[in-house]
Every structure is written in C-alpha cells, then in structure tokens.
Amino acid sequence: MTLGDLIAILPQTILEGLLLGFVYAMVALGYTMVYGVLGLINFAHSEVFMIGAVIGLEVFRFWGNPAAPVIPNPFLLLLVALLFAAVGSGFMAVLVERFAYRPLRKRGSKNILVPMITAIGVSFLLQDLTRIYAALRHNEFNMQYRTYEALNQVFELPLQTTIQMKGVLIIGVSVLMLIGLTYLVNRTKLGKAIRAVSQDMQTAALMGINPDTIISRTFLIGGALGGVAGVLFGLLYTNVTPYSGVLPGLKAFTSAVLGGIGNIPGAMVGGLILGQLETLSGTYLPFLTNGNFGTEYKDVFAFLTLVLLLLFRPQGIFGQNVSEKV
C-alpha cells in the first residue's frame, strides 16, 4: 500500500473509531460516576453493560420476529429495546449497590480492597446467571442480534467514507445521552447533589442530602447509560455472549482513567480517544511494521498509551492533582 492509500482510508478509520469511542464513553461514564461518589472501581459495571445488550437482544428477538412482528418498524423496535435496556440495566445496578455495596459501607470498613473484591464477585455472579439464563432459554452461548435491512442501509459520505444507518443511530443516541447527562449533572438539583456527594459525602449529608439516595440514583443513571451502550454495542457487533462485557468494560474503565477518573467530561473524552487509538492502531500497525505486528496488538497499543500517559500525568487528562496530606 502506498502512502496515498493509507491516507485515503484515514477518514473511514476515524469514523469507525468514533462509533466505538461513543460506546466506550457511555460505559466509562458509569465507572467514573460511581468512582466519583464512592471511590470504588465497580467491576460489575461491565456485566450491567452486557445485561443491557442481552435485554436489547431479547426485545428484538420477541417483538421483532420477521415472520410475525409485534413491532414491525425497526426504528421503533430499537427505541423500545433501548428503553427496556436502560430501565433493566439501571435497576440491576441499583440492586447490586443495595445488596452488595451498601452493607459494606454501613459497616465502615476502611480497606479499599473489600468493596472491589465484592464487585468482582458480583461480576462473576452476573456472568454466570446470564449464562444459565441463555442456556435454559435458548440453549446457546453466543447470541446473535437480528439484522434489519433498514438499519444496515449504507450512506455515502464525502472523502470516500460510508456509514450504515445503525452507525448514524449510534452516534445520534450517544450524543443525545451525553448531552442529557451533562445537563443533568450540571443544571439540575440531582446533579448538584451528586457533585456534592462526590466532593465530600459527610458535608453533603450535613447540608440535607441523603447520600444513600444519591448513590442509588448515581448507580441508576450509570447503569441506564451502560444498558443503552450495551444495545448499541450489540447492534454494532451483532454477537453477544455472557462474557462479552469484560473486554469492553476494561477498555471503558481504561478510558475513564485516561480522562481522569471521577471526572465526567474526562470519561467522555477518554472514551473517544481510546476508540480512535484502537481503530487507528488496528488499521495502521500492520502497515507500519510490514505485517509483523498485526491488528492483534491494538490492545497492547492502547494499554501502553495509558501507561505512558499516566507516567507523565498520573491524574489523567482532566483529573485534578490532589496532593496527599499527612
């Protein structure tokens, strides 16, 4: 391939990175918001995301059967799937908080590892519960999203790029959700309360905010975003397994750290950056190294970038440097 060819595929690569980046950004928000209020890496969030994808899949499967559709319009069907996934994942996140994390908080353990191990336990539990569900309900492990002509319709864009209808929808939905979240966090009373709790839980409680309610709502919002992202992810890659939340969850968490964990705009930017890094390295690494190091190394590239960035800016791109007091 000549240099010209490499440049010619650049716009398409960036566009694909954008799709992936938006999905990461939405999942990263769930990690970063929980981290903001509790200082906890919520490992179970990747499963909340995966459950969103499974709920979306079930909606498509049962109400969108081409032979006898309950909802014939794929766009409406997608909307219903997004709604169900948002509600289902949101409540799943709230349940996880209520039954796994809150008892620990009440006991006042100072060890930060304890809630994290619980999160890992919850993550295992949800993975296998989904696996049992998939095995009993469909007798399968790999679940396929239905495909629709209307969603796969291809549009030509300038600079030799093309985008499918579902790509447009992914960008549209994500942008709407991100704008909505920014408004919610910055302009509403609930948002103010979330910010207050994440700054100082005790002082917030003194100001008449009930931290438990706010933490619960934070999980609800983060979970709902994760659920929506799950459906979009399923639409993009069409294949969902009970374990398919793990890797995107890891990447999304990396994005959150990249942007400065606990920082909401940081998570969005971090997600978009990681999406770009992944698709760009996936496309260009084979050419740059004469095929010796192929697309398989895109994750290595993403993680090494994270390590490098953290070495020079340990607090992430937008994070504030908090110096420790004795």
């Binding site: 796994a100 191990i117 619980t118 890992i120 336990g121 919850v122 993550s123 295992f124 539990l125 949800l126 993975q127 296998d128 519960l129 049992i132």
Partner: peptide, 10 residues
C-alpha cells in the same frame, strides 16, 4: 464455578 465463586466472594 464462577457463580459459586462469585457468591462466596460476596
């Protein structure tokens, strides 16, 4: 095993 493991951890 993950399910059992997860429950034990929690």
């Amino acid at each position: 095993e993950r399910l059992v493991f997860g429950v034990i951890l929690i």
